[in-house]
Nucleic acid binder design. Structure first.
Lengths: 193, 193
DNA sequence: TTTTTTTTAGGACAATCATCCTAAACGACG
DNA sequence: CGTCGTTTAGGATGATTGTCCTAAAAAAAA
């Protein structure tokens, strides 16, 4: 049971708050209060708000990387792995219905703020994109792999957006099933060629 | 050539700034500067920032209503009308690649801020949803109409989100074509029953 | 122990925010 | 012309923001 360092606790709290409230709407004081440390201590670890954002993005990137790597181990077929990805929408359903997709909403926000960290946020989407494309590629989808990856990513983002707006559980379940079936069709059609 | 009133000019400027920068990131001063009036004059027309937001949402709602009504006139078949909807992604492509979908991003932001106006923002999405469902219904899709409407809406939102992140024109065009084809298939399959 | 480095606390700072106020300018109408 | 309601300008306010500083506490090294 290793005690988490102060820096890590700050990043974890910021990660959570940026997700639930957004980056712009979260203040130094908010994070400090969540971690229960003084603003001064805060400044010792992070000189600017942008530095925290960078750290949060790094953490999110690393978290997703290990998540994807895990599926690469447990998922036997590329199709299984892609389905694991789609099923995030089910696994995190309650949170997504409250705050949307952490990756997509942060990316949207930073694009609007024209923030220098927007490329970093987008890199997580790119991580998903290339990972999905690799799975489709392994499933024999050839030069269409990247297009399929973008398609799955887009539909996931769309479902997350409407889930947070309408908070309709049935809708999320139905769409997940549709995307899953779409993937099955594409992969099997490529296999039969 | 009627001179637009000050109030309308404020709402128009706020509409634009909320879209490009987001609601939270846009200040009274920003809007006042865009309209070239003093903050005092501003306060004469709107007592709080929330009042401007309400006005902007009302305007956006009305704008979309007339847009949909226009398609109802010029579009001969329900399918034509639904395609008009999907083609917003093409028509506003350059703006969407810069700032995403005005309706979806505002909704996402207000949900995170847990802002009292979030229901108003969502009502624009509901406007789209019911309009699309009505078209599917007219095309004979019966009890599946609402589900289809949500599907088209979700995919449009997803495309807009990824468009602003990746700024890939080809991706938008390809996805628009896919959604259009999906609509065609669904409608024709229902017509043949 | 003493010394040195790392970590923490909390106040001070200027800037910016939404909001509010007063008074001047304007326009319609007598 | 003068009067009155509408519209405008711009300063004042108090709260909050991100940032910075200094000094005390804690930990590590000597």
């Amino acid at each position: 049971m290793t005690q988490l360092g102060t820096r890590d606790r700050i990043v974890a709290a910021a990660d959570d708050l940026f997700y639930r409230q957004g980056f712009e709407a979260t203040s130094f004081a908010d994070i400090a209060a969540a971690v229960k440390i003084s603003r001064g201590n805060f400044y010792y670890h992070f000189k600017t708000k942008d530095e925290i954002l960078d750290a949060v993005i790094e953490k999110r990137f690393a978290d997703r990387e290990t998540m994807l790597a895990g599926w690469e181990v447990e998922g036997k077929t590329p199709q299984d792995r892609i389905e694991s990805f789609i099923n995030i929408l089910i696994k995190n359903q309650s949170k997504i219905m409250l705050y949307g997709c952490p990756v997509g909403t942060l990316s949207s926000e930073l694009v609007k703020l024209d923030h220098s960290a927007k490329e970093g946020a987008n890199s997580i989407l790119t991580l998903f994109r290339t990972w999905l494309a690799r799975q489709f590629s392994a499933a024999g989808c050839m030069e269409l792999s990247d297009q399929y990856a973008m398609h799955v990513l887009a539909r996931s983002q769309g479902v997350a957006t409407l889930a947070s707006a309408f908070k309709d559980e049935g809708f999320v379940n139905a769409e997940v099933q549709l995307v899953t079936r779409w993937v099955q069709e594409k992969i099997s059609s490529h296999a039969s060629e």
